[in-house]
């Protein structure tokens, strides 16, 4: 715990900035119902009103308060992205570790299967599958988590492969330890640094991916507030010189830049510890 505090104190400006950005977004998401001046779907004024004291960043294409929707949007989008990332990590790391630890035909089977899934660009694959199964939130979560878990599988398998050849893992095998011990006690603790960094990167990717799908009208469906669909709904405004769509788009960028700044620093620290 003290080591963590010390590490945090040694963080450079960019990383502190990133932490600040992520913290602000998280607070906004958690406190949305408490601090939002209006409801998520309440129509409160005219269409595309400019910023004023009653509407801090104006209103959207249906006259809803944009600031309130940004807060609720944070809640929805982050929660879904986090759920998907967690799911994809749960699936990806377990199978990846398994493939690396057991090897043989199980590894071959899993790896070739993932190769086939990864041969498709994620966005195209998701679009094709969603065109068939329809765009509900559960479908979205399962499809993206599954597609994303292939990337997690690749990484965790590669990391675990490097660890599995270490003599301390061999020593545990020779002791007669079972698969679960090997994965949980020998491999996982040593795989944590790259996996934590990857979690940040995958979260960004998933977050951007959902935003992109929503922006295309195929992700989270209205009237649920979601940053990607908010960009889409207000896209028309830009040609009139009204910058409403830049707010949700900027919010997406704000969070991902924050996470990336932290991950960048974390990778730097982790690589420095190794040599």
């Amino acid at each position: 715990m003290t080591a963590l505090l010390k590490l945090l104190r040694s963080a450079p400006f960019s990383a502190r900035l990133g932490m600040g950005m992520v913290l602000i977004t998280l607070l906004a998401a958690i406190l949305a119902p408490a601090i939002a001046p209006y409801g998520e779907t309440a129509v409160t004024g005219d269409v595309w009103l400019p910023a004023s004291s009653s509407h801090w960043v104006g209103t959207d294409n249906l006259g809803r308060d944009l600031f309130s929707r940004l807060l609720f949007g944070a809640r929805n989008t982050i929660a879904i992205a986090f759920l998907i990332t967690a799911l994809s990590f749960g699936v990806g790391t377990v199978w990846g570790f398994l493939a690396a630890t057991v090897g043989g035909w199980i590894d071959q089977l899993l790896s070739r299967g993932v190769d086939i899934l990864m041969a498709f660009p994620t966005l195209i694959f998701a679009l094709m599958v969603l065109s068939v199964v329809g765009t509900s939130i559960p479908a979205l979560v399962v499809v993206i988590a599954l597609l994303d878990s292939t990337r997690v599988f690749r990484l965790s398998r590669a990391v675990a492969m490097d660890i599995a050849v270490m003599e301390y893992v061999e020593a545990a095998r020779l002791r007669g330890e079972g698969l679960w011990w090997l994965m949980r006690h020998e491999i996982l603790p040593n795989a944590m640094p790259p996996l934590v960094a990857e979690f940040g990167l995958r979260f960004c990717f998933v977050f951007l991916f959902i935003a992109a799908l929503s922006f295309l009208g195929l992700g989270i469906q209205p009237p649920t507030a979601d940053w990607g669909s908010m960009v889409r709904e207000n896209a028309g405004a830009i040609t009139f010189g009204i910058y409403t769509p830049l707010w949700p788009a900027g919010a997406i960028a704000f969070l991902t830049v924050g996470v990336n700044l932290i991950v960048d620093w974390f990778l730097h620290v982790a690589s420095g510890l190794e040599d």
Partner: peptide, 17 residues
């Protein structure tokens, strides 16, 4: 009853234990 000691003590001990 059959144990083993390795060449590289660095890689023979789990650094997280």
């Amino acid at each position: 009853r059959l144990q083993m000691i390795y060449q590289m003590p660095d890689t023979a001990l789990n650094p997280r234990q």
